[in-house]
């Protein structure tokens, strides 16, 4: 089982990626968010301008990248900390997070979807935000679909929805290494769906992506006609 990411852990990592000015702004923004639940409405959109939009992981670091933060940006992390600073729990927290998503631009929506996992570390959110994951999966925006299948989506999606999400990634060319939960959730039905997909590709004379081949039995995808 993949280790859960806590907001505190995220804060430490983010601290290494912020300028002095960015750090100062974030500290003030988190304080305001703790004191006034309405303040986040205007602070959340500003995270990219104030903290940066680059990758959260230091690409020049000699240490191997932590796969849990693959694809995360600095503003994703800042927005996650802001959501975690909200003085709310359960349904109230779910409602405010839903509003941030509803009124968010693409970067804000991505930040919400990625942040749901850390926000739920101690189960304080539960499945209240699952409708947002479904909304993200309905888009054709690869950034949102990827974020919808981050740790929270992998934790709460029903099996059928999770499988459809994975298949949508395959169709849109999203690397399966970018999404969460495959080790725990890949089941016989997903293998069947991917096998059918691989056969269809072969029948059309097209390549099968390597990450799909890793999830199917190669002897099952030799070309054959349906009886």
């Amino acid at each position: 089982m993949t280790r859960k990411t806590s907001p505190d852990e995220l804060h430490v990592l983010l601290g290494t990626r912020l300028t002095g000015e960015g750090e100062q702004w974030l500290t003030a923004a988190l304080d305001r968010t703790r004191q006034d639940r309405a303040a986040i409405g205007a602070l959340f959109p500003a995270a990219g301008r104030r903290c940066g939009r680059g990758p959260l992981l230091d690409v020049e670091s000699s240490r191997p990248p932590d796969p849990r933060f693959r694809g995360w940006t600095v503003d994703d992390a800042a927005r996650t900390l802001m959501m975690a600073a909200l003085p709310l729990h359960g349904t109230d927290l779910g409602d405010e997070v839903a509003a941030l998503y509803r009124y968010g631009d693409a970067a804000e929506k991505r930040g919400v979807l990625r942040g749901l996992g850390p926000l739920d570390t101690d189960g304080k959110l539960g499945d209240h935000a699952l409708p947002l994951v479904h909304d993200g999966l309905r888009t054709n925006d690869t950034r949102l679909i990827t974020a919808a299948l981050a740790s929270y989506g992998a934790r709460y999606l029903q099996p059928a929805a999770y499988r459809q999400g994975v298949l949508k990634c395959v169709f849109l060319g999203i690397p399966l290494a970018d999404i969460a939960g495959l080790d725990e959730r890949a089941d016989a039905e997903l293998a069947r769906m991917l096998t059918d997909y691989a056969r269809e590709r072969r029948a059309a004379g097209r390549d099968v992506p390597a990450d799909v081949l890793g999830l199917v039995d190669p002897t099952d995808i030799t070309l054959s006609r349906e009886a």
Partner: peptide, 10 residues
């Protein structure tokens, strides 16, 4: 009521 959210956008 929703303007503050949008006025803050990039």
């Amino acid at each position: 009521d929703i303007l503050p959210r949008y006025l803050a956008k990039d």
